[in-house]
């Protein structure tokens, strides 16, 4: 028998505990990053030149520096600046930072998809800038935003595996711990992979359902 199911049965509770940590980091870190990314996207579109440059710089940093190096820098580097964070807080901050950079790009592409004339029209009808954004621009963005945001969320959810290198007790860390005790690489790594895969499938399906809902809601 190639696969020993007893090992999987024993490992499953530990892996589930790891999954809880993975999910916790994703649930807090990714939405925080999406908020930050949205903010930076508006900064990138503003008339203020320094704000535009800052947003561009942020996106280029995230696009051109590996997640691993960002994690090392914040876990080992920040204490030298007097900011000592636990692995969990580093995980939240790094996830939010990285998600934000990618979401900023997604959001800017979406903002460009709404014709400028619509903004001008609603402004000339006397709507405030806020009303224009909330009632005219954002509803049209939603269905445009959902597919790339879904793949971003899945990407970041998977990338939390990298936090195992800074000893955050998440799914990959737990499976590394288990394999170093039992050397049952096939069973434990395989189970961890399947858990990640199922979670990604759930996220993917949720994204598709949400997209259909929003499209139907937009048609009225």
């Amino acid at each position: 028998m190639l696969v020993d199911f007893d090992i999987i049965r024993e490992a499953l509770p530990v892996l589930m505990k790891g999954l809880q940590m993975t999910v916790l980091v994703s649930v807090i870190g990714i939405p925080a990053g999406i908020l930050a990314g949205g903010l930076f996207a508006y900064m990138g579109e503003s008339r203020n030149r320094p704000a535009r440059l800052l947003a561009k710089f942020y996106v280029e940093l995230v696009r051109n520096i590996p997640f691993l190096i960002v994690i090392y820098l914040s876990y080992f580097g920040l204490p030298k600046l007097g900011l000592r964070l636990s692995a969990f807080h580093v995980a939240l901050a790094a996830t939010a930072f990285y998600t934000g950079g990618y979401f900023c790009e997604v959001m800017r592409a979406a903002l460009h998809s709404v014709p400028r004339g619509q903004v001008q029209a609603s402004r000339s009808l006397g709507m405030s800038a806020w009303t224009t954004q909330f009632h005219i621009v954002l509803p049209q963005l939603l269905s445009f935003l959902i597919p790339p945001t879904t793949s971003l969320v899945i990407m970041m959810f998977k990338d939390t595996a990298i936090f195992s290198v800074v000893t955050l007790p998440e799914l990959t860390y737990q499976s590394n711990l288990l394999t170093s005790e039992s050397f049952a690489y096939v069973e434990i790594l395989g189970t961890a992979a399947v858990i990640y895969w199922l979670c990604s499938l759930v996220l993917d399906t949720a994204g598709q359902v949400l997209e259909r809902r929003v499209t139907r809601w937009m048609r009225g």
Binding site: I154, K158, D159, T160, A161, I162, S164, T172, S175, N176, T179, Y185, V186, L189, G190, A192, A193, Y196, W197, C199, S200, L201, D204
Partner: peptide, 23 residues
């Protein structure tokens, strides 16, 4: 495609390093 896109690269690397050679 779904498997490759649904699992972390880190897990894939560990599988390629520890599992595939012995299999």
């Amino acid at each position: 495609v779904s498997l490759m896109r649904g699992t972390p690269l880190l897990i894939q690397l560990l599988i390629a390093f520890y599992v595939i050679p012995s299999l």
